[in-house]
Simulated scan of single mutants.
Amino acid sequence: MRAFEDRIGHSFARPELLLRALTHASVSSPNRKDNQRLEFLGDRVLGLVMSTALLEHDKTATEGQLAPRFNALVRKEACADVAREIDLGSVLKLGRSEMMSGGRRKEALLGDAMEAVIAAVYKDAGFEAAQEMILRLWGSRIGKVEDDARDPKTALQEYVQARRQNPPAYVQVAREGPDHQPIFTIAVRLDDGTEEQASAGSKRQAEQAAAKALLTRLEQDT
């Protein structure tokens, strides 16, 4: 675990907290607690740190501007991205079924474990230690969050509704790869037949990518 502690920049005085943060429910037992309660706490710690950071980063932003930026920084995808950067998956404690189904790469498991690690640091050394780790690991994401906060599906829907068109339809057109690492292809279609497709490891990511591609095309054509 020492190498992982080096990656997150925190040495645990109570290493049992880190072990619990890395223990998935699939391998828990009466004598071995999983990370679900820590995940709950870590989500709240992350939220407080990001709320404070956003207010300090842009002192003129309105609540309406801050809310989507906040969501972009704390959503599961962002937590999973940070988890991948520190190779959290390699130290996760998983049951055999989860390991066989690619659990170390699953976005939900990585995001949940990242939140649990945040809580473990908070309980081990207090809020300031957790805040320091979060700000270091999230790094430049805070400064460029305006770009990440624009949700493509929402932006596309607003675009077509402003032109009195029906909301876009999302259709799964293909699913490839093994069960533990599927690739979904999603098409987004408008009433007039305009369409774009995109592929990703989750339906949500594929929908977002397809919406972004279609929105870019529509904006270029106007």
Rank of each mutant, 00 (worst) to 15 (best):
A149G: 11
P168Q: 06
T154G: 12
G95P: 00
G143E: 03
E5N: 09
D112W: 04
R84V: 15
T23F: 05
Q172H: 04
A198C: 06
E115W: 00
G47T: 01
D6T: 08
D147A: 15
T222P: 07
A162Y: 02
P167M: 04
G177P: 07
F4Y: 15
A120G: 02
M99H: 02
A198H: 03
L92Y: 02
P167V: 13
I183Y: 10
T154I: 11
K144Q: 14
A211N: 00
L109P: 07
V49R: 00
I142H: 05
G193L: 06
G64N: 14
N35G: 07
R14F: 09
H180P: 00
I86M: 06
P168W: 06
I183N: 06
A130I: 05
Q161D: 11
A174M: 07
R175C: 10
K106I: 09
D34F: 01
A21E: 03
V74I: 15
G193N: 09
A119T: 12
G201P: 08
K212Q: 11
N31S: 12
L110V: 05
A149T: 05
A155T: 09
L135Q: 06
A120D: 02
H24S: 07
A72N: 05
G47C: 03
I186P: 04
F127P: 07
K144P: 00
Q36R: 15
D191S: 15
S199T: 13
T23C: 02
T185A: 13
F127L: 11
D147N: 06
I134A: 14
L73A: 02
R104G: 11
H10Q: 13
Q208W: 13
Y122H: 09
N166S: 14
D147K: 14
R84M: 14
L22F: 08
Q36G: 08
H180W: 15
H57Q: 15
D192P: 01
R44M: 13
D6P: 09
